[in-house]
Design a binder for these strands. Sequence first.
DNA 1: CTGAAAGCGCTTACAG
DNA 2: CTGAAAGCGCTTACAG
Lengths: 334, 334
Amino acid sequence: MGSSTPPTSRDVARLAGVSQTTVSYALTGKGAVSPSTRRRVLQVAESIGYRPNLAARSMRTRRSGRLAVITGVAIDNQPSMVTGASEVANAAGFIMETHSVDGSIADRTDRTLELASGGQYEGILTFVPVLPAALSTDRSAVPVIAATAYDEDMHSTGELADASLLDTFVSTLAEAGHRRFVHVAGPDQYASARARRETYLAAVDRHGVESLGVLGGDWPPETGRRAVLALPDDAPPVAVIAANDNLALGVLRGAAERGWSVPGDLVLTGWDNADFGEYTMPSLTTMAVDFREGGRRAMRLLIATLRDEEPPVSTTPLQRIVWRESTGSIAPAS
Amino acid sequence: MGSSTPPTSRDVARLAGVSQTTVSYALTGKGAVSPSTRRRVLQVAESIGYRPNLAARSMRTRRSGRLAVITGVAIDNQPSMVTGASEVANAAGFIMETHSVDGSIADRTDRTLELASGGQYEGILTFVPVLPAALSTDRSAVPVIAATAYDEDMHSTGELADASLLDTFVSTLAEAGHRRFVHVAGPDQYASARARRETYLAAVDRHGVESLGVLGGDWPPETGRRAVLALPDDAPPVAVIAANDNLALGVLRGAAERGWSVPGDLVLTGWDNADFGEYTMPSLTTMAVDFREGGRRAMRLLIATLRDEEPPVSTTPLQRIVWRESTGSIAPAS
DNA sequence: CTGAAAGCGCTTACAG
DNA sequence: CTGAAAGCGCTTACAG
């Protein structure tokens, strides 16, 4: 009990009175086996609960049919990316496994290399930043693709971190008559946060509106709340461009604490289309980012790479503005 | 390029002018190797980028040092459970890998069995419901433990789905003078939703307050909003016990749409301590559930099982009520 | 301190 | 249609 070792294909062979070869053929459906033999083998295998040892199989075939996706605990919106990647992997006949890694970027790089050369996967897709060393395809036989939504360096698919539509927030609000803006930024280590901040600065400049500055510097709601509390009394009417919905939520709370109405004294945009944004009072104008499709594309790229095919090009945008109550009634530029 | 196969321990041996045995000893630090030989082997291994084939190693040693955690896309709050499990696994010297599975319960059970008998893991911890067949320890050599926060059947660790503290919501509000209650329930398929509903019904009964009924039946905020819109005009003052924070968020929105103030006309409790709950207007009274500690305990149980040790007993509660603005000012029973 | 040999559980030419 | 044999890349008694 417990210490007994699981049955092997040799056990099945002995019990069925055939060779290991025949068992293998019957199970994988590869060689030619007579129907009756095949039936008997299958029956025996089933009865003793035989399951092939995957490590042995993949060591022999050098094909595991498995792809690894590397994620980390702290990356927002990844669940949808993983789901999208999984859809594509399964459709292509692969089993996809998710490995969650944490620690420093060096640790993550090590682990990625380990997985790449461990002989168990035919390809690796990482959603967390790793050092370029992990991506070199010369030494590790299997391809490693990085699709990080939220950081730069390496071969990133990048589209997910694109901030160019933030310009549309500013221009549309400017056209609607808003003259004063503030940006509540995310942390500087994030490429997406930096991109949004820079796009904001360029936009206020380009559209000739006043900027009261860039506040914030972190993702949690409390940062947004503090940013509003730090605004001068005569700030309203002001348009607040928050780097994400969490921050926007804090802004909403801070505005209420100061007695400022939204969208009266203050209009507000977020980013990410978080579930709660449709139900806050007022509901949040935001950027819907299609992480799932981002995951699909990343996986298509990996599969194309390992098959030595040309990667498919996708042109449809991954982002879309959702106008809601927090920006008042405006006629969005089509 | 690309088609070249990764270096093996035999390659290292040849290049270092030693036997494969010596390479193995030098790398694993097991046998006795002279310092100079050891240094040379390590140097060669490093220079050609050698990494042991894990499949081969674990096939030979029958010890992989790896544990698998099975999760699914749709399970709320799992990230923290996974984090907790990972902490304990790493502290015990194991590498933990997360496998995300979806499909029917039969599919998930199959996949679990496959992992259990695949020879790559020393133990399996599943956070998604599987059939009892997957848990039988007689056939698969490795232990499989189910720690499902949100469904019943099998050896569940259960504490996470415990709803008994909901009685405290009701009794405390009753003591504060609230006489009329409503429950906005989650979907019936969830053990946690059922437990909360039943605890609610028992509580209103026990504390002699009126119940306007049980509404809802799903998790998204919209369900909570609809529930409030369905209430009769003369419902207030009423205490709404929502099955989770999403639902409570919808309730808040619905109340605003009807012109009902919170906590004036309506008081409200949620569940889960979602991030946004501290920043809604008003902030949400809720149940903080320590999923991370739940994950830790589940992993401790798995490790104790595979080591044939007595599982550690934990007595500290995993749940704690957080009183906030949505219930007005009350003196919580200590 | 070092090496030759066996074997973990599979699959796959090859021969019959 | 079926089987004996080799080998995937490791580790580990065993002998020297």
